[in-house]
Simulated assay, not measured.
Amino acid sequence: MTARVVATDPALALIAELQAEYGDILFHQSGGCCDGSSPMCYPAGDFRIGAGDIHLGDVGSAPVYIGRAQGDAWAHTQLILDVVPGRGGMFSLDNGREQRFLTRGRVFDESERRELGLES
Rank of each mutant, 00 (worst) to 15 (best):
P43L: 03
V107P: 01
H76I: 11
T8F: 09
P43W: 07
P39M: 00
L118M: 06
S30P: 09
P85T: 08
A13K: 14
G50V: 02
E17W: 08
G60D: 11
G57Y: 06
S120K: 12
R114P: 06
D35P: 08
L26E: 03
H28I: 13
P10I: 00
E17H: 02
C41D: 04
D82N: 11
W74G: 08
V5T: 03
R68I: 05
S111G: 06
A51S: 14
M40K: 02
S38R: 02
E112D: 10
E119W: 08
V59S: 04
G52M: 13
P10F: 07
T103P: 03
D109F: 01
M40Q: 09
G60A: 11
Y65M: 01
D24L: 00
Q19P: 04
G50W: 05
M40G: 06
G105N: 11
G88M: 05
E110K: 02
A7S: 11
E21K: 15
Q70C: 07
R113T: 05
L102T: 12
G86P: 04
A75D: 11
V5K: 02
E98F: 14
V84M: 03
A44K: 09
G86A: 08
E110P: 06
Q70K: 10
R87Q: 15
G31A: 00
Q19H: 04
G50F: 03
G60C: 10
Q99D: 02
S111D: 10
L14F: 02
D53N: 15
R87V: 14
A75S: 15
A3G: 09
G88N: 05
I49P: 06
D53E: 15
E119R: 09
S38L: 12
R68C: 02
A16P: 03
T2R: 12
A44L: 10
D94L: 00
V84L: 07
E119C: 12
D72V: 08
G96A: 14
M40R: 05
H55C: 14
E110L: 12
G31I: 05
L81G: 07
F91Y: 15
G117T: 05
R87P: 03
M1E: 13
G45K: 09
L56I: 08
R97Y: 04
R100M: 13
A20T: 12
D9E: 15
A16H: 12
V84K: 06
R106W: 09
A16L: 11
R87K: 15
P63D: 13
I15Q: 04
A16I: 04
L18S: 03
E112R: 00
G32L: 07
G105M: 12
L116S: 08
